[in-house]
């Protein structure tokens, strides 16, 4: 009898699991409007990685074809280079950015002139590292990305801290991440 009951639980859970089959590839998935945040906190070190389709950031995913487009990439990179604009950390935690790396798409010139433009998606990736003197005070982080990049509708955030691993779905209205 136990087995049948267990079997039933197994069946229902595995059926449910089927729906989520594709979720594991989430970091690779490229969905316009959605972005990813990976946040890890250990000791006094806070690391944040932000991955977003270029569509959310600048509104196109090809090499800049005119001056305006080149400028919008430049200004996006400038914004991404200012972690204090993107993340609101509690001031009591006393965090200072120590590493900022922004990897815009189309950074490399085509190998040879006239090369076929690949029709692959392009992404912005940026990495930040903060040093926090009172990391224990770091209970939540305000995510201001929505304000600066209006093409972003949702951010899937995964975080690791001493309280464990968790994932949260953030939107412009619900833009606070609990650690």
């Amino acid at each position: 009898m136990t087995r049948t009951k267990r079997g039933f639980i197994v069946l229902s859970i595995s059926l449910a699991a089927g729906i989520y089959q594709t979720v594991n590839a989430e970091q690779d998935a490229h969905i316009h409007g959605e972005a990813h945040l990976l946040i890890a906190l250990e000791g006094s070190s806070l690391q944040i990685e932000f991955l977003s389709p270029a569509m959310n950031i600048v509104g196109f995913e090809h090499r800049p074809q005119n001056e305006t487009q080149a400028q919008s990439i430049e200004s996006a990179v400038a914004t991404l280079n200012q972690p204090n604009l993107l993340f609101k950390l509690p001031s009591t935690a006393q965090c200072n950015p120590v590493v900022v790396e922004v990897e815009p798409p189309f950074n490399h010139e085509p190998e040879h002139a006239g090369a076929e433009e690949s029709d692959e998606h392009s992404e912005f990736t940026s990495r930040y590292q903060f040093q926090c003197q009172e990391a224990a005070r770091l209970e939540r982080i305000g995510i201001e990305i929505f304000r600066h990049f209006s093409g972003t509708q949702a951010i899937e955030a995964q975080s690791i801290s001493s309280s464990g691993q968790r994932s949260q779905e953030l939107t412009a209205e619900r833009n606070t991440l609990d650690l």
Binding site: I13, S14, A16, A17, G18, Y20, Q21, T22, V23, N24
Partner: peptide, 9 residues
């Protein structure tokens, strides 16, 4: 490689 929940279960 399968699903995350599958693997966990």
């Amino acid at each position: 490689r399968s699903g995350a929940i599958n693997l966990l279960l």
